[in-house]
Simulated assay, not measured.
Amino acid sequence: MKNLFFFIALLLTHFTFAQKVDKDIDIIKETLSRQENAWNRGDLDKFMNGYWESDDLLFIGKSGVTNGWQATLDNYKKSYPNTEAMGKLKFNLIKVEKLSKNVALVIGKWHLSRNKGDLQGHFSLTWKKINGTWVIIADHSS
C-alpha cells in the first residue's frame, strides 16, 4: 500500500511539473504572438516588450552583435522606418523547449511579406524568466 501511495504522489508531482512547463511554453508562445501583432500594426515599441529591457540584451544579426535593449530598438527603427518597410511578419515556430526551470530555447523561421520584396530567415531565441516574467535575453536572427 505504501508503494501505491508513493507511486501516486510521484505521478502527481510529475503531472504538476509538466503542467507548469506547458504553461511557461504557452506564455512564451503568447508573447511571440503579441510581438507578431505589434509588428504588423507598425508598433516597434510594443514589439520590443518581449525583449529583456537591459543593457545586457544580445541581438546577433547579419551586421554582428548589438548590446542592449535601446540599441536593438534603435536598429529596428533604422532598418524599418515605416510600415511599408516593416511589411507583415509571420513567425513559424520549429522548436520551443525549456532547458531548465528558468531558461527556454525557441527556434523558428520569420517571414516578412512586403511590396518591395519579401524577406525571410531563421532565428534562435534564448528566453529567461526574470522576476517572474519570460523575456528574450539573446536573439540570433539571420
Rank of each mutant, 00 (worst) to 15 (best):
F59D: 06
R41D: 13
F47T: 08
S54T: 01
Y80W: 12
G42I: 02
D45V: 08
E30W: 05
E84L: 12
A85Y: 06
N40S: 09
E36I: 07
G87E: 01
N49M: 04
T83Y: 07
Y51D: 01
N67V: 10
Y80E: 03
Q70S: 08
Y80T: 01
D45R: 11
E36G: 12
N67L: 15
Q70P: 04
L32Q: 15
D56T: 08
E30Y: 04
V65T: 15
W52M: 03
S63P: 06
A71Q: 08
G61H: 15
Y76Q: 01
D55N: 15
K23A: 14
P81A: 02
L58E: 09
G50W: 01
K78H: 11
D43F: 02
E84P: 02
N82E: 00
D56A: 10
S79E: 04
D22C: 06
D26W: 05
V21L: 10
G61Y: 15
D22Q: 13
Y51P: 03
K88H: 14
G87V: 05
N67G: 08
V65Y: 12
G68N: 11
A38V: 05
L57T: 02
E84H: 05
I28F: 07
A71W: 03
R34V: 02
E36M: 09
R41E: 14
Y80A: 04
I60H: 12
K20L: 12
D45F: 03
K29C: 02
D74C: 00
N82A: 01
S63E: 11
K88N: 14
G61P: 13
R34K: 12
Q19D: 14
G64V: 05
A71K: 13
A85G: 03
L73V: 03
N40W: 07
M48A: 07
S33N: 13
E36R: 10
A71L: 04
N67K: 15
M48E: 03
D22K: 14
N82I: 00
V65K: 14
M48Q: 07
Q19S: 12
I60N: 11
Q70H: 07
L44A: 03
Y80G: 02
D45I: 01
L58P: 05
